[in-house]
Simulated assay, not measured.
Amino acid sequence: MADAAAEMDAIYRVQRHIYDASRKYYLLGRDGLIEGLDPPPGGTVLEIGCGTGRNLILAAHHHPSARFFGIDVSPAMLETAAASVARAGLSHCIRLAQADASRLDADRLFGIAQFDRVFVSYALSMIPPWRDALDCAFRAVSPGGALHIVDFGEQGQLPSAFRTGLRAWLRKFSVEPRAELEAELRRLAEQHGAVLTFSRPFRDYACSAVLRRAA
Rank of each mutant, 00 (worst) to 15 (best):
A4K: 11
A4P: 05
A5G: 09
A5F: 12
E7Y: 02
E7P: 03
E7Q: 14
M8E: 08
M8A: 11
M8V: 03
D9T: 10
D9K: 08
A10C: 04
A10W: 02
A10M: 03
A10I: 01
I11A: 05
I11W: 03
Y12C: 03
Y12R: 02
Y12P: 00
Y12H: 05
R13G: 02
R13F: 11
R13K: 09
R13P: 00
R13H: 15
R13M: 02
V14R: 14
Q15H: 14
R16D: 00
R16C: 05
H17N: 07
H17L: 15
I18H: 15
I18P: 00
Y19N: 01
D20L: 09
A21H: 13
A21G: 02
K24D: 02
K24N: 05
K24Q: 14
Y25F: 15
Y25T: 06
Y25Q: 06
Y26E: 05
Y26P: 15
L27M: 14
L27Q: 11
L28K: 14
L28N: 08
L28Q: 08
G29D: 07
D31T: 14
G32Y: 04
L33N: 03
L33Q: 04
L33C: 12
I34V: 12
I34L: 15
I34Q: 09
E35A: 15
G36I: 01
L37S: 02
L37D: 01
D38N: 14
P39A: 09
P39M: 11
P39R: 08
P40Q: 06
P41Q: 04
P41L: 09
